[in-house]
Write a protein that binds this DNA or RNA. Structure first.
Lengths: 104, 104
DNA sequence: CACGGATATATCAGATATGATATAAAAGAT
DNA sequence: ATCTTTTATATCATATCTGATATATCCGTG
């Protein structure tokens, strides 16, 4: 992974850590992060087409800042919230499955 | 939903609640539960083919009881752990996406 | 430029998920 | 039937995720 990409992850709170720690990231851990980032990106795309972050937050019974975190791939956001958010934008299980399947 | 199915969910810790509360479950909430249960079932199938719960727990850096909960669709288990477990059994994002896409 | 709506960042207390442990129950083998 | 392995259930302290709030930054429009 190049430095720029790593810095981006670290800025989002991912504990990519030092080089040696990074090398300890298993393929599974890497894949999990990639799944989260794919969901984030897709969520942002979907949401932007029809509503504002605040509107989505209301549907989700969450808050605008939390939606922002979700869309920005912040490490504090669980896959669970990402999927709940996707569903709140009207995404079907098919579409969600699609996004995950595209990873890797 | 028939009573038998509901009891099953309640036994696993899902707050399906009384009838009136149940009727308040949005389609999104229902879909989320279905996604979790689909992942649970698939995890159990996959894991049984190649290893014991304890072995999977070790790969996951988790514990056997937790794996049991995951496979039994216990409400305390997050989608995140389910997906981590799937990956630990060797599942690809494609396969995971497939399982989710099948829901609904 | 100034204003307003949208999005981003920071912080926090409470809620939920976590792995660990103990132990019970089930399933298999001999 | 007994012994061994595997899986299920219960409990717990700690870690992580949560929505809320305050506030900063961005971005388009007048």
């Amino acid at each position: 992974m190049d430095k720029a990409k790593r810095k981006k992850l670290e800025d989002k709170g991912w504990k990519v850590g030092t080089v040696s720690e990074f090398l300890d990231l298993t393929p599974e851990e890497t894949t999990l992060i990639e799944i989260k980032l794919a969901l984030s990106r897709n969520l942002k795309e979907r949401r932007q087409k029809s509503m504002t972050q605040t509107e989505l937050a209301d549907k989700l019974h969450s808050s605008q800042p939390r939606v922002a975190n979700a869309e920005n791939g912040d490490a504090s956001v669980s896959i669970e919230l990402l999927i709940r958010a996707m569903l709140a934008t009207g995404a079907t299980p098919q579409e969600i499955g699609q996004v995950i399947a595209q990873v890797g």
